[in-house]
Design a protein around this nucleic acid. Sequence first.
DNA 1: TCTGGGGTCCTAGGACCC
DNA 2: TCTGGGGTCCTAGGACCC
Length: 418
Amino acid sequence: MYLLIDCNNFFASCEQIFNPALRNIPVVVLSNNDGCVIARSKEAKELGIPMGAPAFQYKNLFLTKNVAVFSSNFTLYADMSQRIMDILASLGFDFEIYSIDEAFLYVPCSNDYLKLANTIRNQIKQWTGITVSVGIAPTKTLAKAANKLAKNATGVFLIDKPQNNHPQLAKFPLEDVWGIGKKTAEKLHQFGLYFVPDLLAKPDHWIKKHLKVTGLRTILELRGKSCLELKEDTPQKSIIRSRSFGTEITTLKNLEEAIASFAASIGKKLRTHRLKTSNLCIFITSNRFKKSPYFSDSVHIHLPEASSDTSYLINQSKIILHKIFQENISYKRAGVMAYELSSETALQKDLFHLSNTMTTQKEHLSKVVDQINHRFGSNTMYFAAEGIKKTWQGKPLSRSKQYTTSWNDIPRIILKNS
DNA sequence: TCTGGGGTCCTAGGACCC
DNA sequence: TCTGGGGTCCTAGGACCC
């Protein structure tokens, strides 16, 4: 059986744990530039604040309903996530970290799955303060559905045999099925299909024709035939760094600095994972919400030799940027993507590319910069090309402290003499 | 004034081959 | 009238996920 463990309202819960005054009141966490709502506490959901809602449209509601609004604090969330994943890993079952707040466990046999799930729940709650829901089922897709049902029940839900036709599954909307998104759901609605049993009644060839192989896989999984196994710890295939700018950019110089920052960040991640990239893509866009004509362009290049050296990646990124930059445009968003990642130890050298001691020295330099930043704090050293002011970076309005990763921010308990 | 960021997988269609 | 058949590889774009 598969167990899907999913943290409830994860980012909002992280905020509530370290600030007791936030418990039982609506809390939302916003995306970069405090743009959209990306997490809501139970109380915030009850107020009808949707996921992804633009914050400015809900400003009044936040005020009148005393909603606690936070800028995102990924350092905190990532650390809390790690603690939870460590607990799951310690159980000794095969498991797959699916996202920052979710993991699948594969438990081949157990006398009492519900008891096991409750033990896991209690332990995570006690050790981290986070409440999780557990869905248990013979396939991953059913475990996702069970998890959804668990959230509305006691926190644990078991679908042992799909053919038992749980009454909850009979009214399970197709758009809530893992793998069926907005577009597919709309398509199915046109055929008069709304709930899981409606789709299960269709023959395989109908599914294959309209939903392709991915759709067929989903249906088989819903019928209890496992098609999706736990994913091995496969190496990453691409790395993306992109941002919407707090202040729109109009000059090439500022855009170069932003792109250089993204390239530097990619370089660091590549080195951390002992990878190199041999394909870069740069993209720049104007504001898609504005009435003025939308501008968007991107270019890929194949690097003559794979690299993880920041100075090289910055240089190459700049060269590509120059190919697509146009004057008199207000740029709202840009990004750098790295593809064709390969292990730094198993690399194909380019016969005609000048790979010399200079290259080796530069790579060494990047690693030294990493070590310095690791020891003295990130951004202690960075490339001048990234710019000093980073004017494009918006300032988060209300970010919580780094309670678990910074000595200065560790919560203090004050004992009062009674 | 104000609308996120980071990923994966699949398919259709073009280019190319014999 | 009429213009093969079978295959691979690559890429852009769509759909999905959190």
